[in-house]
């Protein structure tokens, strides 16, 4: 359910072909009424159906915040566990496409700040499929944060059924000198930076792709940091109260004695998203900024 998901095949073609296959009952085009249709999905889920709500951009979920952050997240709690909200809210949440501040939000931190909600950020097609299946089967509200820049990438994905469990991080690359923890498209950029660091600087970098922000795989993060003794956290969020602020806290609390350097970060430059392409590409993490910070962390 969402804007242009059925007859138009989705603004970004994510739902392409589904309307032809499943028809009006299961693919529903909505008016531009995010508050109403996400609230409606929450209500419908109470009777056991499993709505998947598309936000054309996650940025547009901001007009539905009461429904999502009050109703979806707290109904279970306030009913003392009598009510479940098994909905999925999915859509792109990224910058890097010069569409300006109102269309470039990455609200996984805000979602994670609401106990009762779950949130995942797939960095590749394999995870996108596996996490989506897990999200739909999950009995709680799950946000799936996608990325329009990744829509254009190609990966091999098995036809057969598989699930990527929530709360399990993925080690994209093993290494011994530095751990980079990242999620979403930034994990892919971090992987690229790790390769460059290895080739040009002889530094062995381990890249942990969180996949799931809440629940969070603390164990994998800590195991990696205890091995490499250094951590660089990379995310597209703005720094203040970003996901990595929490991860940094976890690392200093639980792996303090293992650290050979302070935990370092690369996040978006702290300002509303700028429109101009060249500047936005600098504002959000890029390979150059990651490498620069990795070298600082290792210095």
């Amino acid at each position: 359910m969402g804007e242009e998901v059925a007859q138009y095949n989705g603004a970004y073609k994510v739902t392409e072909g589904l309307w032809e296959k499943w028809g009006d009952k299961r693919l529903i085009d909505t008016p531009i009424s995010e508050a109403a249709f996400s609230g409606l999905a929450i209500g419908a889920s109470a009777l056991g159906i499993r709505p998947v709500v598309e936000m054309m951009f996650m940025s547009f979920s901001y007009v539905a915040i009461d429904q999502l952050f009050n109703n979806a997240s707290f109904c279970r709690y306030m009913s003392g566990g009598l009510m479940n909200i098994p909905i999925v809210v999915r859509g792109p949440a990224n910058g890097g496409t010069n569409v300006g501040a109102t269309h470039s939000h990455t609200p996984e931190n805000m979602v994670a700040n609401h106990p009762g909600l779950k949130v995942v950020c797939p960095s590749n097609a394999y995870d996108a499929k596996g996490l989506m299946k897990a999200a739909i089967r999950d009995n709680d509200p799950v946000f799936v944060m996608e990325n329009t820049l990744l829509y254009g990438e190609k990966w091999d994905v098995p036809e057969e059924e598989y699930i990527v469990e929530l709360g399990v991080a993925n080690i994209l690359k093993e290494g011994s000198d530095l751990t980079i923890v990242s999620h979403g498209r930034c994990a892919m950029i971090s992987l690229q930076a790790a390769k460059t660091l290895e080739e040009k600087h002889g530094i062995s970098v381990e890249v942990v792709d969180l996949r799931s922000i809440r629940p969070l795989d603390e164990e994998t993060i800590l195991r990696s940091v205890k091995k490499t003794h250094r951590a660089l956290l990379v995310e597209e969020n703005k720094p203040y109260c970003g996901v990595d602020a929490q991860i940094s806290h976890i690392i200093q609390l639980k792996a303090f004695d293992y650290l050979d350097a302070p935990v370092h970060r690369v996040s978006a430059i702290d300002a509303p998203q700028i429109y101009a392409k060249e500047l936005e590409n600098w504002q959000i993490p890029n390979e150059e900024r990651i490498i620069e910070m990795a070298l600082k962390c290792l210095a």
Binding site: S59, Y62, V63, V99, G100, A101, I274, Y275
Partner: peptide, 29 residues
């Protein structure tokens, strides 16, 4: 996206502003 733009290249096509002409934007949501 240039510095000489009405919003210094910060807003883009959807976000033109000219308060001196009583024009309060260009809004994306």
């Amino acid at each position: 996206g240039k510095h000489t733009g009405c919003s210094k290249g910060k807003g883009g096509s959807m976000h033109f502003f000219a308060p001196d002409k009583n024009y309060w934007g260009g809004h994306g949501i």
